[in-house]
Computed example of a mutant assay.
Amino acid sequence: MTATTVQGDQAHRDQVQADQVNVDLGDRSYDVAIGRGLIGDAGTRITALFGRRRAAIVTDETVAGLHLARLQAALAASGIEAEALILPAGEATKRWDKLGETVEWLISQKIERKDLVIAFGGGVIGDLAGFAAAILRRGVRFVQIPTTLLAQVDSSVGGKTGINSPQGKNLIGAFHQPSLVLADIDVLDTLTPRDFRAGYGEVAKYGLLGDERFFEWLEANATELAADPVRRAEAVRHSVAMKAGIVQRDETEQGERALLNLGHTFGHALEAATGYSDRLLHGEGVAIGCVLAFDLSARQGLCAQEAPSRVAAHFAKMGLPTRIADIAGALPDDEGLIALMAQDKKVEAGKLRFILAHGIGQAFVTDAVDPSQLRAVLAQSRA
């Protein structure tokens, strides 16, 4: 990874070209387009790929207020009829009743197998609408138009769809690959600073799990991502390319793909402990989880003692929480958090598996975790 050179005046900076990353899965392959103005071009891109068919948009109240009219106008200009279901914003929408509401609405719209479901929102909408598309008529095509940084670099790519259970995150779902992903980096300008920072937690994860040079680039450039579309597009492109490569090699998470869950065993438990509320956003949980994973790695002698400090310092510089103590309000005790971790999808034969690291960019999966060291890491993070 080399640092992007940003030269010229602001007009030059505004001319960010759309890029394409292909996810090669044979007859289920698809492209991820990354660039500016892609929502306005959505009708042209969709009709070029699928012809003029009907579509149904699933979105949330926040995204609808900001961007829905522009998407519907772009689709209409290409002859695509598209009604929209507008759901409440937030992680609490990823549940059974909202899934049922979505599926019944799609049936009422007479969406057929060759029509399209368009997931227009962040990770919650992408996961929920994608799962609805997976089970509707035993599988309907869908397009992801992610509107958050987190969704653009992570949840919109790879085909994981699903909802949460009160007992754990993403425990109900299916693998259902999208047919196209349009990542319009212009919409990221409308994110709140907190939401942008939370999405950054997933960007940094890619460097931490498998690309130290990318992490070094982020250390030098990340504070400029919110304001600079050139650096922002490069961060999204590189993250998507890394994920695409892993998904191509291990689509259904039988091995290598588990590395993408660096920080998530801890993070998902913390999200469940906070009731999937705005007390802790997903990317914030991932940031804390990454720090805990490196702390645990260092305690077990797997990586240098300096690595956890470097990870924590970078997340803190980006305004992200790095400790359990940074989460406001009451939380379960350590045994309660460990019980929540035991619901993690990576559990095998009742045994917890963690993503740990030999160093930055050197993550691996293991179930060889000393329970006393795990408890010590959790206790230290609460202090």
Score class of each variant (00 low, 15 high):
residue 151 A to N: 01
residue 235 A to F: 15
residue 238 H to E: 14
residue 375 R to K: 13
residue 169 K to Y: 04
residue 45 R to I: 00
residue 166 P to Q: 10
residue 196 F to S: 15
residue 157 V to K: 02
residue 164 N to F: 01
residue 101 E to M: 12
residue 287 A to P: 08
residue 137 R to P: 00
residue 300 Q to R: 10
residue 261 N to L: 13
residue 343 Q to R: 14
residue 374 L to G: 09
residue 21 V to K: 12
residue 87 L to Y: 09
residue 20 Q to T: 14
residue 309 S to L: 12
residue 53 R to D: 01
residue 115 D to Q: 09
residue 260 L to P: 00
residue 190 T to P: 06
residue 156 S to Y: 11
residue 79 G to T: 14
residue 99 L to Y: 04
residue 11 A to R: 03
residue 168 G to V: 06
residue 87 L to W: 09
residue 65 G to C: 08
residue 195 D to N: 14
residue 169 K to F: 13
residue 240 V to F: 00
residue 345 K to H: 05
residue 93 T to A: 11
residue 248 Q to F: 03
residue 153 V to N: 06
residue 207 G to M: 02
residue 152 Q to F: 08
residue 342 A to N: 12
residue 65 G to A: 06
residue 234 E to P: 05
residue 193 P to I: 12
residue 262 L to W: 12
residue 170 N to P: 04
residue 83 E to D: 10
residue 56 A to D: 13
residue 92 A to V: 15
residue 90 G to N: 06
residue 8 G to H: 15
residue 246 I to F: 07
residue 249 R to H: 05
residue 49 L to W: 02
residue 308 P to L: 12
residue 79 G to W: 07
residue 320 L to V: 03
residue 204 A to F: 05
residue 189 D to M: 13
residue 341 M to G: 13
residue 102 T to A: 12
residue 90 G to Y: 10
residue 134 A to D: 08
residue 213 R to M: 03
residue 254 Q to F: 04
residue 365 V to T: 05
residue 332 P to C: 12
residue 322 T to D: 14
residue 19 D to N: 08
residue 226 A to R: 12
residue 50 F to G: 01
residue 96 W to R: 04
residue 356 L to R: 06
residue 337 L to E: 13
residue 266 F to I: 00
residue 171 L to W: 05
residue 136 L to V: 07
residue 298 A to T: 06
residue 233 A to G: 14
residue 42 A to Y: 03
residue 204 A to W: 01
residue 186 D to A: 11
residue 311 V to H: 04
residue 163 I to H: 10
residue 46 I to V: 10
residue 180 L to I: 09
residue 365 V to N: 04
residue 185 I to K: 00
residue 88 P to A: 08
residue 383 A to V: 04
residue 118 I to N: 03
residue 296 L to V: 00
residue 312 A to W: 07
residue 299 R to C: 09
residue 363 A to C: 09
residue 362 Q to H: 08
residue 166 P to S: 05
residue 306 E to S: 14
residue 139 G to A: 11
residue 119 A to G: 11
residue 248 Q to V: 04
residue 155 S to R: 03
residue 273 A to D: 08
residue 10 Q to P: 12
residue 107 I to R: 12
residue 277 S to T: 07
residue 113 R to C: 01
residue 45 R to M: 14
residue 81 E to K: 10
residue 49 L to T: 07
residue 232 R to F: 15
residue 77 A to G: 11
residue 255 G to D: 15
residue 339 A to Y: 07
residue 73 A to V: 00
residue 62 T to P: 03
residue 296 L to R: 03
residue 111 I to V: 15
residue 131 F to L: 09
residue 251 E to L: 15
residue 114 K to G: 15
residue 155 S to Y: 05
residue 203 V to A: 03
residue 115 D to K: 05
residue 68 L to P: 04
residue 376 A to T: 10
residue 189 D to L: 11
residue 39 I to C: 08
residue 54 R to K: 15
residue 215 F to I: 01
residue 54 R to H: 10
residue 82 A to L: 02
residue 298 A to M: 09
residue 234 E to F: 11
residue 339 A to C: 13
residue 173 G to C: 11
residue 113 R to E: 00
residue 279 R to C: 11
residue 87 L to R: 02
residue 187 V to C: 08
residue 44 T to K: 06
residue 229 P to Q: 14
residue 167 Q to C: 08
residue 323 R to L: 05
residue 309 S to V: 13
residue 326 D to G: 06
residue 342 A to L: 14
residue 151 A to C: 08
residue 40 G to P: 00
residue 98 K to I: 10
